[in-house]
Design a binder for these strands. Structure first.
Lengths: 168, 168
DNA sequence: CAAAATATGTCAACATGGCTGACGTATACC
DNA sequence: GGTATACGTCAGCCATGTTGACATATTTTG
């Protein structure tokens, strides 16, 4: 019963370590989305609306196709929420400057206000976690998360890619 | 156009920094769940089934109520997926050792095999990210994620809490 | 022991947000 | 002038969350 072989022991540690990495992500995401969800529910919106508002706010002038690539959902799914946001005046669109087939999206003042309110919640949570963990930990956090992201999207996620709506 | 006031500049950096922290979580979660989702789809299961299988595998003998607390969903929602998993032979239950109202859940051999298959995908992803980032970064990753989790669940998420199904 | 509390399940109805497939329109490009 | 592209829409399906009400078995408590 004593003295497990080191190989076995290491395997156990490794599994525990990896499972913890998995679970932390689950719990963090679960709690991270809870705040905005509550605000959205009052407006008759859902998490999908938040994502659209967030990224349109983040990249004003973004094209529909770029939004689809970021969210990784179908245009029909996007259409439902984006249509609502357009009709209810949170998002506006105008034709692209050179290619008039494009719809360049941006937040209206109402949309900006909602975005601020929603994201403030998450920003505060991240800020608190950063403060508690320290600058070195933050670097590690970013490094590991970046490694979890599909290689094709790492540039975008790390902010080293040019913003989507460059050619305005 | 030159020389922004330091206050303004810092505010900008801070916002960028926090937004990046938010987005990394979004992208990582998006890509992290994609692999298992594909496997599950073939079996007619969804992400919810994975979560149940995962945590039952993680804590054999877990009670239904504990599972609800971890997942933060209603018993009706859980019932749907758990019922399927029970009927299709991935999960089994037996009465609690002292309190026979309880249903202690565990994976069947079939369930264990599916769990392995699903989680292996994520374990590999985490392992690769850990390897690429280094041990120090991993510490930071854990520290920050832990700070993002509701305080009530930090002990559980960090593995410092006793496993739910202790009294077997 | 009877009553209350607890652990769990179930039925029914509804909302959100994914998906596929098919088809339509406007604009750009060769 | 024909093809490709950016985007939209209609219709229907599925997974998974919700609320509310009620049922059953078992434990705890006065």
């Amino acid at each position: 019963m004593a003295d497990l072989k080191p190989g076995v022991h290491q395997l156990y540690l490794r599994d525990e370590e990896l499972r913890q990495g998995i679970e932390l992500l689950f719990y963090a995401y679960r709690d991270f989305t809870a705040g905005p969800d509550a605000i959205l529910a009052k407006l008759g919106f859902g998490r999908a609306h938040h994502r659209v508002i967030y990224f349109v706010g983040r990249y004003p002038g973004i094209r529909v196709g770029e939004l689809l690539a970021i969210l990784r959902i179908t245009k029909q799914s996007l259409s439902r929420v984006l249509g609502q946001l357009l009709r209810e005046g949170y998002v506006a669109h105008k034709p692209g400057p050179t290619d008039r087939r494009e719809r360049r999206l941006e937040l209206t003042p109402t949309g900006i206000e909602l975005e601020r309110q929603l994201t403030e919640n998450q920003r505060a949570r991240v800020a608190a976690a950063y403060r508690a963990a320290g600058a070195a930990a933050v670097e590690g956090y970013k490094k590991v998360l970046l490694g979890l992201i599909d290689e094709t999207d790492r540039a975008r996620a790390s902010g080293t890619a040019p913003p989507p709506a460059r050619g305005r």
